[in-house]
Design a protein around this nucleic acid. Structure first.
Lengths: 350, 350
DNA sequence: CTGAAAGCGCTTACAG
DNA sequence: CTGAAAGCGCTTACAG
């Protein structure tokens, strides 16, 4: 926490006349502070004449309410925190965008945080939420075991998004296992047999997407060779590139690759190109997330789509409800997904 | 502004015992509130024994300070706002990421906002900053004429980033004209003559990049045909796609295309592919920003690079200095750029 | 419709 | 080293 002089100063660029308070406005308008407050917040009806006098004083003094004071009094800051693993990914950025837009429509500001899946950051953020600077928290934990959200912990109003779920908090997510199963089933159905999965890590999302990958194989009576489950810790373009380049250095190219994010898929396409392999002629590629780049990838990416705006809206609704009533029953909501087929996969059916 | 019950409740998931205050901790430890405050903030030395008693009470009550109260008292919230035109772009996301990370290292939270280049949003944000919920504001205005930051206005501590500059506020930016001139000069130098520019809009960044485009031509003794300055309002993949597709429907393909962002460049490559044109064999492409996708584009994109982390750090330093001293002289800092050459351009020199 | 009092939870002088 | 008082700027009861 930084220290600073308890300044109230805030002035015209350069100068520093002290900021006017409610009392200053009241004095100037010849009314009480309460009346000014009533005018500003429409808390109680104010006579036309008084309102005009107050309005004038408000403008003349360029009054802006002190939200810290209001927050202290009301027990609300009208600010929420949204904590995502990592903003640098297109996926997180899109999610953040929807949260900021939708929260803004409700008059709520969004403090954005990155956790990098680290438990200590999560704990810190929960604290900050408890510290009442924010009214609540949207949290996307990465690993179940290391998540700060565990049974028995004291929680501020919090809604979890993503794959990690604890029955002590509200939750919005997508059926990752089902989505991965479906998109891999599509690859199998198109005649691909030697299918690789890129993105194996300890993250819960990786676990679920890998499970879907395996289930699709099992359902088709196929077995998965372990080397085809390619690890990749960095779920970004560079990670996908290195994972696939490394694989190609030691193995025959697969028929198809299921990348656990579109970002990795784009890196994978690049690695294939570097190895002289064409998509989809030589290798088919499927992604996950349907970020905007997926549509303009070369070739356009087949991927898992879901309504990110809806995800954000649902999470915000749950959070608002939780802020209003900490004792309400825990709720878990699922957002539907769909498979978007584009040119990155071809049929191998003869 | 939302209304809510002035609740102080915040409890174990489900229950709602009131949150302990400094006074509760003091009572339990048998000391004064001031002493507890001293322990927490290390404001004054506290005897070993007292400190242990206070620490125990702190833990037993699971005390978390109320930051609204602290903010009211200190005149600081340790929260800043960062307002970018649009988070959904990879460029903005990367910038936001650096601001959040670096501000976090200084113990500052970041409230992220999107302005969409709208002046009323900018005004609103400046107000919010003045409302003391945030200590200061990093703002990226889009158009000079419509920016809320104008001479004579009362400003909270604010640092401008990007192309729009007003001499009444600190500013960090990149020499857009020079960068654009250099990358277009590279295209000309490689033998390209019919060069298109994609992204003409009323935004200040478009104006400057177009100016660089023209200057490069002028320096080489070339003239620019007006139809080669292709308008594109949406600076994203879709915008670039439509702009180039539309151009190709009515004109011969150019030798090369300078896209004013990498995102548009990626869309442009897609549009060229759809028209049966290869990059760089048929058309060379250059972008701007060096977002991570640029490296994994197909082919990898030649683009303008600059240190986004450094940009963020400089802006944060200026903001901190401004918060500490509203009267200090206005400062403007330039971040250097460089041209990153990748496979998206080829030589046409015979 | 309007006002005077009290207090949200903290920290800064000021005493001891 | 520790405490009692005062106040940051607002809003909620409570009176009139």
């Amino acid at each position: 926490m930084r220290k600073g002089p308890g300044t109230n100063g805030q002035g015209v660029a350069g100068s520093s006349r002290p900021r006017p308070t409610l009392r200053d406005v009241a004095l100037r308008a010849g009314v009480s502070a309460k009346t000014v407050s009533n005018v500003i917040n429409r808390t109680a009806p104010v006579s036309e004449e008084t309102r005009l006098r107050v309005d004038r004083a408000l403008v003349e003094l360029d009054y802006v309410p002190n939200l810290s004071a209001r927050g202290l009094r009301n027990g609300r800051s009208d600010l929420i925190a949204v904590a995502l693993p990592d903003l640098a990914s297109a996926y997180s950025a899109e999610i953040a965008h929807h949260f900021i837009t939708l929260a803004g429509e409700d008059g709520l500001g969004v403090q954005l945080e990155e956790t990098y899946g680290k438990a200590d950051r999560e704990i810190q953020l929960l604290s900050r939420a408890k510290a009442h600077l924010v009214d609540g928290l949207i949290l996307n934990p990465v690993r179940l075991e290391t998540s700060a959200v565990q049974r028995g912990i004291v929680l501020p109003p919090v809604v979890l998004i993503g794959e990690v779920h604890q029955p002590i908090a509200d939750h919005v997510w997508i059926d990752n296992v089902g989505a991965s199963r479906d998109i891999v089933a599509l690859l199998i159905n198109e005649g691909h047999r030697r299918i690789a999965a890129v993105g194996a890590t300890k993250a819960e999302s990786a676990r679920q997407r890998l499970q879907g990958f395996r289930e699709a194989h099992a359902a088709a009576g196929l077995s998965v060779r372990p080397e085809l489950e390619i690890p990749c810790v960095n779920w970004d373009g560079g990670g996908g590139y290195r994972a696939v380049a490394g694989f190609l250095a030691e193995h025959e190219p697969p028929d198809a690759i299921f990348c656990m994010t579109d970002a990795m898929a784009i890196g994978a396409i690049s690695a294939l190109a570097a190895a002289g392999l064409r998509v989809p002629d030589d290798v088919s590629i499927a992604g996950y997330d349907n970020v905007w780049e997926a549509r303009f990838a070369h070739p356009p990416l087949t991927t898992v789509d879901f309504d990110k705006r809806r995800l954000a809206r649902l999470a915000l609704e749950l959070l608002s409800a939780r802020i209003d009533d900490t004792a309400r029953p825990i709720q878990s909501v699922t957002v539907p997904y769909s498979i978007v087929r584009r040119d990155s996969i071809r049929s191998r059916r003869s």
